[in-house]
């Protein structure tokens, strides 16, 4: 019976007017969306966390420094391949879920319980080209350092004598 009501609730969600919001808005005007269905988009960052049926990911706005935790089911995880970090652009996902400022289930966490996740842009690994000019600069600096260190030690020896 419990499962039936849960299913009914999930099926009813798409009928509910889920508003598309930016993550920043969830921080600045959280009260407005608390406990409601919302749609957010962001890049998956960091790590996949948690064990069992319930997992945690964090998503970050593509253009701003605002990130939020998303609770997702084990099944949904399979959709995500890339987690953003240094030299990796994470998958950009669209999340439909229930937003909580203080999630009672997760001891007060600010989170979104995902009902559906969709990857809208695949992430990728990228390489950074080595800056040759910096290498030349390092060699120049090395020569200067060695020269000054030589002068210091030379004068030290003559002082001791």
């Amino acid at each position: 019976m419990k499962k039936f009501f849960l299913l009914l609730f999930i099926l009813a969600i798409p009928l509910y007017p889920a508003e598309k919001v930016k993550i920043r808005e969830l921080y600045e005007n959280g009260e407005k969306y608390n406990g409601k269905a919302i749609i957010v988009e962001g890049e998956v960052i960091g790590d996949l966390m948690g064990k069992g049926e319930e997992r945690w990911i964090n998503i970050k706005d593509e253009f701003e420094d605002f990130a939020i935790g998303i609770v997702i089911s084990k099944k949904e995880i399979e959709k995500i391949e890339n987690f953003g970090r240094y030299r990796i652009k994470g998958d950009v996902v669209r999340v439909l879920g229930i937003y909580n400022i203080n999630c009672p289930k997760h001891y007060g966490e600010r989170d979104i319980h995902a009902l559906n996740i969709e990857v809208i842009k695949k992430g990728e690994k990228y390489t950074e080209e080595v800056n040759i000019k910096k290498i030349y600069l390092c060699f120049l600096l090395l020569s200067i350092t060695l020269f000054i260190a030589y002068l210091y030690h030379k004068e030290g020896i003559s002082r001791e004598e």
């Binding site: 600096l141 350092t145 000054i148």
Partner: peptide, 28 residues
């Protein structure tokens, strides 16, 4: 294997060494 950051740390290290040695050379 973060090569660009590695270069930045080599640069910062050498810059500190050069300033440090310059000072103790003048004030030994």
């Amino acid at each position: 294997k973060e090569w660009n950051p590695a270069i930045d740390f080599i640069f910062s290290s050498l810059f500190s060494f050069s300033i440090g040695y310059l000072i103790i050379w003048r004030f030994p």
